[in-house]
Design a protein around this nucleic acid. Structure first.
Lengths: 149, 149
DNA sequence: CAGTATCCTGAACGATACTG
DNA sequence: CAGTATCGTTCAGGATACTG
């Protein structure tokens, strides 16, 4: 598992370079914290895990069953990332067979609350977005049809 | 440009399958709107573009200069996606040389406002996250050192 | 049960060259 | 100026097999 460790730390090709006095430092720097957090929660599974753990602590297999599309490997990678960032607490019970439980930390719960505003926004505006997409696609289709009929 | 068009529409391998009555429909379905929105704004450049357009309308080259790490290709792809979703308005002025200006739509502005809460959360908690990472990494390093010295 | 370790594929992205 | 077209690389993530 090299990517789990390399995912966050190995990201400074110093591409984005703005530099000057700017009211938007938070988004113009490559190592921007916001971007890192967004990358964390917007990846394929993190949000699902956070949402499921919001209710109750769950075991590895329970999470797997709930999400079900996730591969064993990616669930592990996702959980490790969340644990590393202090969003999820991992508890190993020294029994056999092993029993490992995951739960949100208090930090994880505050993140979930914040994400809710995004969820709310999306639910409120998904109609507009769908309409915009449909409009754009039909416009594009028309243009293509007019160009190469 | 195949990926620009395929980016959003070609995403239903119907992997995540939960099904049963669940208070979390918004996050367990593969075609989840929240996930789509997150994918849009969390990609490499969208957030930067939205942030820059929050202030003023900008031309293609101006955006390119501001972001500067972005390739011509990705800026185009990003702008097209944002336009398709109704977050950004594209205006072509029929002059020569061409003059194309981009600005946020009202929908785009409301999204920016929503994202701000995430930014605020991040600024507030980045210390905790950094600490959690450092703690996790040192723990991990210790374990590795104890296993294979 | 809860993982690791490998291998492999597709697609995201960058670099480059060309155009209305 | 503001793109489009093509090519090559990288790497996230799935499939599979093996362990404490």
């Amino acid at each position: 598992m090299e990517e789990g460790t390399s995912k966050s730390p190995s990201k400074r090709p110093s591409t984005v370079n703005h530099g000057d006095a700017d009211p938007f430092q938070w988004d113009t720097r490559e190592d921007c914290q916001v971007r890192q957090i967004l990358d964390r929660i917007a990846d394929k599974w993190s949000l699902l895990v956070i949402a499921l753990l919001e209710n109750r602590r769950l075991r590895f297999t329970e999470l797997r069953r709930e999400i079900d599309g996730v591969s064993q490997r990616m669930l592990t990678v996702t959980l490790r990332s969340l644990e590393r960032d202090g969003l999820v607490k991992r508890t190993v019970h020294p029994v056999v067979p092993p029993r490992v439980e995951y739960e949100l930390t208090s930090l994880g719960r505050t993140l979930h609350a914040t994400v809710q505003s995004l969820v709310t926004w999306t639910e409120k505006h998904q109609g507009e977005i769908a309409a915009a997409r449909a409009a754009y696609d039909s416009r594009t289709a028309d243009a293509a049809e007019a160009t190469a009929p």
